[in-house]
Structures are given as structure tokens and as C-alpha cells.
Simulated scan of single mutants.
Amino acid sequence: MAVQRRNTRQRAMVLEAVRNHDDHPTADDIYLDIRRIDSKISRGTVYRNLNLLEETGQISTVRTEGGCRFDWRVDGHAHLICRRCGCVADVALPYRPEIDTDLQERSGFTDVTHATLFRGICPGCQARALPTEGAQTGA
């Protein structure tokens, strides 16, 4: 029997805060956004509601080495993570459900899905690594 949960003002605020981001915010990012609107909301309330929103399929989570990042997109899509700063970006590649089906048939597992994470160096980190104009190269 499924647990019936009521929609709360706090949950609505958390969902709206996630939807206002395209940069895959952390739980702390969401907490700080909401604190600007409601100074009485607790960190625990934000974290609980993020977990509940993920469990109910209203948001998705990208698990990175630096911790969980949240995404308003719940469709199958890939992510690209910067190895230097940890930023997360959506990748415009189609989800390949045939991979899930093939693996399910080969493994005996059921309800197989996949998440694709690519890693690289983002344009911002690349720019910061470039020597400044006029700097000596040591030649």
C-alpha cells in the first residue's frame, strides 16, 4: 500500500527552487535559495523534501564525487561533469533504452535503467588554465 503524502508549502518551494536552476544545484544551493524567501525553513526540511521529490519522480539526482546534485529534468539524459570544478551540464544525447533491455536479458536483472556520466574539463576551467596575455612563457 502506497503512503499518501500531502503536498506542503515547503515541498512546493523546494520543487520551484530546483526548477529555477539549469546548473544542477546542490542541496545547500537549494537551501540558501529558499532561506531568502522563508528564513524559518530548516536545512533538514529542504533535504527531506529533496529526497521525497526524487522518490516520487518529480526531480532526479546526479550523484557525483562531490555529492548529490539535483535536476528538474526527469527524462533519460546524460550529464557531463567537470573534473576540476565539479559543474554538471546536460548532454544532448538520446537515451538508449535498448541498452537496458539488452543488459536485462543478459543479466537476469529486472527493471534495468542506466545513467550516463561523462567527465571532462569545462570551458570555464580551460579559460582559467590559459596563461594571461603578455605573460612570459619561459622560452
Rank of each mutant, 00 (worst) to 15 (best):
A27E: 08
G44Q: 13
I59M: 03
I99K: 08
S42W: 02
R19A: 10
A89F: 11
C125E: 00
R11Q: 09
G76E: 06
P25H: 01
Q104M: 15
G124Q: 14
G124V: 10
R83W: 08
P123H: 00
R48Y: 09
G124R: 11
I30L: 07
R69Q: 00
T101C: 08
H77M: 11
L53A: 03
E16W: 11
G76R: 05
T26G: 04
L80D: 10
V74S: 06
C125D: 00
R106D: 12
A92K: 12
G120H: 07
R73Q: 13
R63V: 14
R19W: 07
A135V: 12
T61G: 08
L117F: 13
D28R: 14
R48P: 00
D38S: 07
R5C: 09
L53N: 02
R83S: 13
Q10H: 14
A139Y: 14
L130S: 07
T64L: 04
A78V: 04
G134P: 02
A89N: 11
H114C: 03
N51I: 08
H114D: 00
T132L: 15
V91C: 06
C82M: 01
P25V: 01
R69H: 06
S60K: 06
Q136H: 12
Q126D: 06
L32C: 08
H77G: 08
T61H: 07
L53T: 01
G108H: 05
D38G: 03
A17M: 03
Q4T: 14
N7Y: 10
E65D: 14
G138Q: 02
C68E: 15
D33K: 08
E65W: 15
S42C: 04
F118C: 06
G108Q: 04
E16T: 12
S39N: 11
E105V: 08
V14D: 04
R5N: 10
M1Q: 12
P25E: 03
M13Y: 05
E133D: 14
A127S: 06
C122R: 00
T45S: 09
I37C: 07
D23R: 10
I121P: 01
